[in-house]
Design a binder for these strands. Structure first.
Length: 883
DNA sequence: ACCGCCGGGTGCC
DNA sequence: ACCGCCGGGTGCC
């Protein structure tokens, strides 16, 4: 047997089950393993359960079964201490050599306090291992106990598991005390006073549950309510000039970066620091988050503000790596020589580099803005860590001032076992642009981001909460905001109380958000003036009448399609033939644009063939639809597809959306549209950027015009007569259509450029630059595919937009318009949407309007149920084909 | 005494 | 742990 003395507490050593194991590939790094949200290995493969490996209990539907008093034993063997009324975490320890039922007890800091006494552990082990309930503990008094302490446990789980939990406890001779009103909110039973210390009085304010309505509107207002009065100090940037609201943001960010205050919910009392939510106390002053969330609306200049921070706040308020004197000289006197080599050497240990992670689509925007806004006499080393040639040498990276990379690179480097130079550098600062990208805690990019070592951390996002409060957790975890880095504490102290309607929970959430977030909307005011004064944006719909010939073709195809679709309606197989129907609708939409566009989709996949062949056909059809460039949407999130995957039953969803469905309905998930079985292995990924612009291009076909092309050309020529300097965007979902439009543009002598998803990063940058620059030979027209480029794409040189074909998703259109209607636009923006009369396009407009209404009140709203989803889709199809 | 009782050794899981 | 529990020592009053 082991010598018990050998097991006596060693500081810094703790057994945390699998969570504590450091990943093999990165075991040279001094990682903070408590941040690791899941023990899954750093691989990433589509179609394996790894996609959503994790610990995501379906905690939203949990109810409180009851409470039970038990004992924590073995305190003297562990370093972790607990205060009176402090929350503790109960964690199974199945590999404990003395008792496979062992349940360890950890304090808020993650330090082990002791074990649950074995008789009780025997009962808990079964309940915890089978996920029948989540067991949470609060220690009513434990501050001075040497050997054991009591623990008040709450059992939370799904209603249907309550019986099993009660029975199992009963088997071992335990009985739950029924839940009381005040224990409902997850802050333990009624003796909990809400304040640390040995107080046993009842809460001062009786907890009043809010109605769902109240909760929703409170939730809505969370970010809107941020009164930014105390964040109005302005600060001049070094090396670039800013608008007033950006100067405020700069001042706020710089103060956050040099923050010496206690983090939110911490108080100092008698030389100890108390966390007022968990009642955890430490002697050492807890460090605050050096950073936060810049949640300004799109277009307010988050990128520029961040650049200003990089230029202005190098290190503890002092420029880095130069001495202040030299920097002043350098930045303000126009001196170009840099005599700083010596200084740099002596500062070797100081982190220098800022890492910026953004979606690929805004990478070029960062590069542009860095070039535009940093005056030429400021010498910054920067490195774009992207592409196969990127340097794998961490030293190269650490010597930069700015390193730019994308989430995909971050994730794939991290997953590719071995050398991720990004993870070897200690960064002065890490900035996540479009930071809501990491909202899924199980996504590889999230894990990769959490593992970065940085002194300061920023999240830039216009939408910090996209669907639910859950979205915030990854962000807080990235910011290392203790104790919320651990999902249990986030969930117990904020997420559950808020979703259960506890006003205290909402208060905590609000003060948390307020502490770390700066948010202004486009309509925010600064000193009585709007933050942004954007020129007007007008949208016109120009109705197009097809020629007789075009109408004839259209009507023929329409009747064919309608016949097929109504056959599906009669057979009740509409959703089984979804791919088919999308194909038919696509053909009609294309015919509205130009007869040569028409994707050759052989009508209907009924007829002969084995079910397998049939399925194959349908999946191929879906691929065809996707490859046409059409902006299809996901029936789950109702938004444009991100990472489309095609199911076995030939329906298409965003990968994250469908993975969530499979996860939550495990083990037998069904397709939300047709209730067929779903299996991860059968999902087919379809990369959107692999759009084949040659698909459907009929090489030898003689060029002809179409009604829409005529209308466009007429408008363009008219515009040129009025003012030849006005620049226009011509937008379509169909890149082939854009190609067709090139011919008449050339004939009429227009200088144009083009931007679509098939172009390399380099070509995109070239196209954008030539279009945006004001030179005489610069193109006046850009052919733009609807989804090319993300939100960051800046095309303010244009003030006219011609939208050649409507999108399913009105938000996708709006986003596209915002590429020129944004900061920097000097002229009114006029948008023309071409819509063919009496066609599928008009019906699409009707559906768009319905969606707009829905989106207006959708924040925090419950998701559509499966049957609602089905019905919506069916109704849409009916509307579209006039059935 | 195949008991009771005493007091020392000892102590999570 | 100022406890419980274990197991050895011990044995009328």
């Amino acid at each position: 047997l082991q010598d018990p003395a050998a097991r006596i507490s060693r500081p810094g050593f703790r057994e945390k089950g699998s969570t504590g194991s450091i990943r093999g590939s990165l075991d040279l790094l001094p990682l903070d393993t408590s941040l690791c949200p899941s023990p899954s290995p750093p691989h990433f493969r589509i179609g394996t359960p790894d996609d959503f490996a994790g610990t995501d209990e379906d905690t939203d539907s949990a109810v409180l079964f009851g409470t039970l008093r038990g004992n924590v034993v073995g305190l003297r063997y562990y370093a972790g201490v607990v205060n009176n009324n402090e929350m503790v975490a109960l964690q199974r320890q199945p590999n404990n050599p003395y008792d496979k039922n062992a349940v360890q007890v950890n304090n808020v800091n993650g330090d082990q306090v002791g074990h649950i006494k074995k008789e009780l552990a025997a009962a808990l082990a079964y309940i915890m291992d089978n996920k029948l309930a989540v067991v949470e503990g609060v220690v009513p008094y434990g501050a001075n106990n040497a050997f054991t302490m009591p623990v008040q446990m709450s059992f939370w789980g799904k209603e249907e598991n309550k019986r099993a939990v009660l029975d199992r406890l009963n088997m071992h001779g335990f009985k739950l005390a029924p839940p009381t009103k005040s224990s409902e909110f997850g802050f333990g039973p009624s003796w909990f006073s809400g304040k640390a210390g040995p107080s046993y009085s009842a809460p001062v304010h009786a907890a009043v549950q809010m109605t769902t309505e109240q909760l929703k509107s409170e939730f809505d207002k969370l970010f809107e309510d941020l009164k930014e009065d105390d964040k109005t100090r302005e600060m001049e940037a070094v090396g670039t000039s800013l608008l007033p609201h950006q100067k405020q943001a700069l001042a706020w960010m710089v103060s956050r970066e040099n923050n010496k205050d206690l983090p939110p919910f911490w108080e100092e009392r008698e030389n100890l620091f108390y966390n007022t939510i968990t009642n955890f106390a430490v002697k050492k002053r807890p460090e605050n988050v050096l950073g936060g969330i810049l949640a300004d609306d799109m277009g307010l200049g988050k990128t520029l503000t961040t650049i200003a921070v990089i230029l202005t706040n190098f290190y503890d308020g002092k420029p880095f790596p130069f001495e202040k004197k030299i920097v002043t000289l350098l930045f303000f006197s126009g001196s170009t020589s840099i005599q700083t080599t010596k200084k740099e050497d002596s500062d070797k240990a100081r982190p220098r580099a800022t890492l910026i992670i953004c979606p690929l689509s805004v990478l070029s925007n960062w590069i542009d803005q860095l070039e535009q806004h940093i005056s030429p006499d400021v010498h910054l080393n920067s490195y774009v860590y992207y592409g196969p040639e990127r340097s794998k040498d961490p030293v190269v990276l650490s010597k930069q001032d700015i390193v730019l990379t994308t989430y995909n690179i971050l994730a794939s480097d991290y997953g590719s076992r071995g050398d991720s130079p990004l993870h070897k550098v200690t960064w002065l600062r890490v900035v996540l642009d479009e930071g809501h990208t990491i909202r899924n805690p199980n996504a590889q990019q999230t894990k990769a981001a959490l593992y970065l070592k940085a002194q300061r951390r920023w999240i830039l996002t216009g939408t910090p909460i996209q669907n639910s409060l859950k979205d915030l957790w990854s962000l807080l975890s990235f910011l290392k905001l203790k104790p919320f880095t651990d999902r249990e504490w986030w969930h117990r102290t904020i997420q559950r109380p808020v979703t259960m309607g506890d006003p205290g929970g909402l208060r905590r959430l609000q003060s948390l958000i307020k502490n770390i977030t700066l948010r202004r909307t486009k309509t925010s005011k600064i000193k009585g003036k709007p933050v942004l004064e954007l020129p007007e944006r007008k949208v016109f719909i120009q109705h197009i009448t097809l020629t007789e010939e075009e109408t004839r073709i259209y009507q023929t195809v329409k009747h064919e399609s309608r016949a097929a679709i109504s056959r599906y309606f009669n057979d009740g197989t509409v959703l089984a033939h979804y791919a088919d129907i999308l194909g038919l609708l696509l053909r009609l939409r294309q015919l509205c644009c130009h007869p040569h566009l028409c994707t050759n989709i052989s009508s209907s996949a009924t007829g002969d063939g084995t079910p397998d062949e049939l399925r194959e056909k349908l999946i191929n059809k879906m691929k065809l639809v996707l490859s046409s460039g059409s902006d299809e949407e996901c029936a789950i999130c109702l938004d444009s597809l991100t990472l489309p995957v095609i199911t076995h039953c030939a329906h298409v969803f965003c990968k994250p959306c469908i993975c969530e469905v499979i996860q939550s309905e495990k083990p037998d998930a069904k397709c939300p549209l047709c209730r067929n079985e779903l299996q991860v292995e059968n999902l087919v990924e379809y990369p959107l950027d692999k759009l084949d612009s040659t698909a459907g291009k009929k090489a030898d076909q003689e060029w002809i015009s179409s009604s829409k092309v005529n209308a466009l050309m007429h408008a363009l020529i008219d515009l040129r007569k009025q003012n030849p300097t006005i620049k226009s965007l011509i937008v379509s979902q169909f890149t082939v259509f854009l190609s067709l439009i090139e011919t008449p543009l050339r004939e009429s002598g227009f200088v144009f450029t083009r931007l679509d998803g098939s172009m390399t990063q380099k070509k995109r940058v070239e196209a954008i630059q030539s279009f945006q620059n004001g030179q005489l030979d610069s193109p006046t027209i850009m052919l733009l595919s609807l989804k090319a480029g993300g939100v960051g794409l800046n095309l303010t040189a244009a003030s006219r937009v011609f939208l050649m074909d409507p999108a399913w998703n009105p938000a996708a259109e709006d986003q596209c318009f915002d590429r020129c209607h944004r900061l920097g636009q000097k002229q009114d923006v006029v948008i023309t949407k071409f819509i063919v009369k009496n066609s599928v396009e008009e019906n699409m407009l009707a559906i768009q309007n319905k969606k707009r209404e829905l989106a207006a009140g959708a924040f925090g709203a419950k998701k559509q149920t499966t049957s609602e989803m089905k019905q919506t889709k069916i109704n849409e199809i009916k509307t579209l084909i006039d059935l």
